[in-house]
Write a protein that binds this DNA or RNA. Sequence first.
DNA 1: AACGGTCATTTGATCGTTCAAATTGGAGGG
DNA 2: CCCTCCAATTTGAACGATCAAATGACCGTT
Lengths: 354, 354
Amino acid sequence: MDELADRTTFSIAARQERFAHAAPTIEDVARHAQVSRQTVSNTLNAPDRVRHETLERVRDAINVLGYRANRNARNLRTRTSRAIAYRIPPLGGHLNSVMDTFLHELTEAVESIGCHVLLFASKEDEEELATYWELSAQSAADGIVFAGTGRNDPRAALLKERGMPFVSFGRTWGIEEHSWVDVDGRAGTTLAITHLLARGHRRFAWLGTTDDSPVNDERELGVRETLRHAGVPEADLHVLRLKNDSESDRIAVGGLLDSPEAPTAFVSMSDLQALTVLGELEARSLAPGRDAAVIGFDDSPVAAYAAGGLSTVRQPITRVAREIARLLASQLADPSAPYEGILLEPELVVRRTS
Amino acid sequence: MDELADRTTFSIAARQERFAHAAPTIEDVARHAQVSRQTVSNTLNAPDRVRHETLERVRDAINVLGYRANRNARNLRTRTSRAIAYRIPPLGGHLNSVMDTFLHELTEAVESIGCHVLLFASKEDEEELATYWELSAQSAADGIVFAGTGRNDPRAALLKERGMPFVSFGRTWGIEEHSWVDVDGRAGTTLAITHLLARGHRRFAWLGTTDDSPVNDERELGVRETLRHAGVPEADLHVLRLKNDSESDRIAVGGLLDSPEAPTAFVSMSDLQALTVLGELEARSLAPGRDAAVIGFDDSPVAAYAAGGLSTVRQPITRVAREIARLLASQLADPSAPYEGILLEPELVVRRTS
DNA sequence: AACGGTCATTTGATCGTTCAAATTGGAGGG
DNA sequence: CCCTCCAATTTGAACGATCAAATGACCGTT
């Protein structure tokens, strides 16, 4: 955080030369409509204060001149930025098409509250914190959205301290209270296992991730609980922690399939992991859906295409994004608004692999 | 474009109440370092004009107070925004994981020229044009990046008219000249077919898309040209135009596989389409890599996981993003800079399916 | 006719920064 | 000793909008 932002020069002269016709200002509109600055401003921001007749005249002028309020000027005066910052998840780890969908939905959702998404990339988590600090210091963002909360997430602490509104995709796992929206992963795997039990399966596998994220834990818990309630002995559940490395995952899954008491039903943390299972099944001439059942997570595009249709747990991403936007809007309107947490239910999409 | 931006109120009072300690301004730093505003400004923007000793004093003050220049104020004065706008591709259409990677790389790349990515979503293409207009009128973005140029793209015309710098991912297909960066799709399919020919394949299939995009045409051309040069008769190339609908794609591919002279080598427009081929092959107990070869496009995460490893044509997305940032930077620095087009070469990733 | 109140509109100040021009203080030359 | 020149720093103005307070017009009441 110490070094100063360096300057990639954008000269004013160069810009002005480019724009033969400079964008009209509020003064231009005022002159054209024969009113004052402020009346134009009111036309845009508080039309009820303006006489109907004047309103029309000003609006005409705005249309004729193609006027739009200069964002930077407005933002400076109102001390806002109408931007929501979001760290685009690092490429290496994720393989997570949900987050891509989420970003899209988030963009749409925050547009509905009059904001844009401002993206930034940080390779390291420390860098991420530094960027939040930076954005806050520059008043470059009105709010922050971040995903994948950990236990006692340092981001929450920093943002609260700086008085920067934020909402996370992922609930509070630690002591820090804040607004969040999340999907009930436990309910998701419960749906999957219940479905598999109904299909007559008795030997199960849960394919999680190596990082001990609370998300993984919750989903695994859903598997365990549901099996326990159904009276399935613990020995009939195999838990595999995969590294998200296609080669080693393949070997791990293959090993499980070759074991004497191989499971017949697989529930996994992601559709891609499920793809590994499908591949290994086929390598052993086992047909998914007939010889074994596979259920993925996320309903990514892959799920529709893989093996004639992969069953999967779909997260209501659109709703997640909308709720986040709503909570953000409420915090922006009233910074002292109480925190709110919203837990949404996932849905099981049954296709051919189960 | 007619209606005025509505106002989601953010009151100044509310914000000020929230920020117990308001962010320090340049004046605060100046006072602390016992210099004038402008000297602080120079410290940040033109350090060579400041005496070494003073420089240190000011920098100390900046660190002590945790000062960062207010973006909106700076932007207002310099008539910039240091933001690059990008339309996040609509969800429905292309199940294109390349574009997700691209967005990530773009974010990193424009950070290196001191900018952020400003996202917006538009469902309709007209809406997209309107948004560009809007962004330009508000001076909310310094430049635009857009993807997937069509023939005589209206976006190029609009942005040129408004004097808004832009670079496209996708070359100029029409008469409109502008800066672009693209990947040579023809070279990509040439690599794929050459590889398949070397493996002894003689009957081929090209799986394209129904929309007659120039991208599809180029890639198909690469297939045709290479086969012609190799003396493969035209009748031994089957061209399938798929709708990107998993169910109907499946039927189309299945039909081809069941035909008397079914191809043994498949090259497709995307990894997902290739996944359909893999699925249909396996449904017929044909082993990809042994009984038939399949090559996808994009090297999406799926490729690593599918069927023990899907061969695919990888696009140098990181370089695309960097070149785009470079071209943008040059346009921002000097709006009269000549247009530049950069064509990058893809690379064949050989895995088990070929 | 003077007064108070409401509605519509205008004026002056301000947000925090950078630009452009002015000022200051030395060093060097005639 | 004065003048010029240059480097370092400061001052005044401006970017384009909104806020807060002032003004003006019109109305009914006393």
